[in-house]
Amino acid sequence: MKKRSMLAEIMLVLGGIITTVALLMAFFWAPASLYPDGRVDFAQKIFYFHVPVAEASFLVFVFTAYYGIRFLMTKRREYDTKAKIATEVTLFFVLLTMATGILWTRVEWNVWWQWEPRLTTYFIMTLLVIGYFVLRNSVEDEEKRATYAAAFGILAFIDAPISFLITRFVQSTHPVVFKSGGLETPMLVTFIIAQVGMIMLGYAFYQLRLQQEQLRERLDALKISVGG
């Protein structure tokens, strides 16, 4: 019996194809970035996937806050499940962003880590996302767990726009991506395609995990029926 939604699988396949195309474009079409002294900045290639993964983490985190608010308003369990799954997918993207960012930092700044505004606020976001699951696992009562997690998720999300915008307001060594004249057209096109593909993958991951969770809940309910 088929219990999965086709849309999630279509988005997964399309997202996979689009990100693969973006990967090829990054290496074979987008021109190499140059340092001011004319040397080739090969590490800039990390940008084409580091930034889309980071943007995807911010975007999916919106759903943690959104479903957290919906849960607090309605107390419906499905919103708690959706917020939890959104935070799981956020954690996946956050960890990928951190790992790829650290590799880029090592090449460009000659250090593995620097306490500059963007990295620091994103690190705080990482800790908050991990903290969300620590909180969930430390509360046994289902109702209380969902309420605390919803409140924590909403508060944790406040850090996302701060982290996203901080390089525009505070002096930072981290590059600002979205600024006028920041990228040559082939670079921008490659980046946008990678971004679209990553958002599609993010949506597919969220939907697939949600379906998995809903199946598990249905299975638990059936087990009770069969057992009783």
Binding site: G16, R39, I46, F49, V107
Partner: peptide
């Protein structure tokens, strides 16, 4: 110029693809 940076770029892309 490219070779010293290549391991980091390859590691970043491999990490993303393997994780996905």
């Amino acid at each position: 110029q490219v070779l010293p940076q290549a391991p980091y770029v390859i590691a970043a892309y491999a990490l993303i693809w393997v994780s996905l």
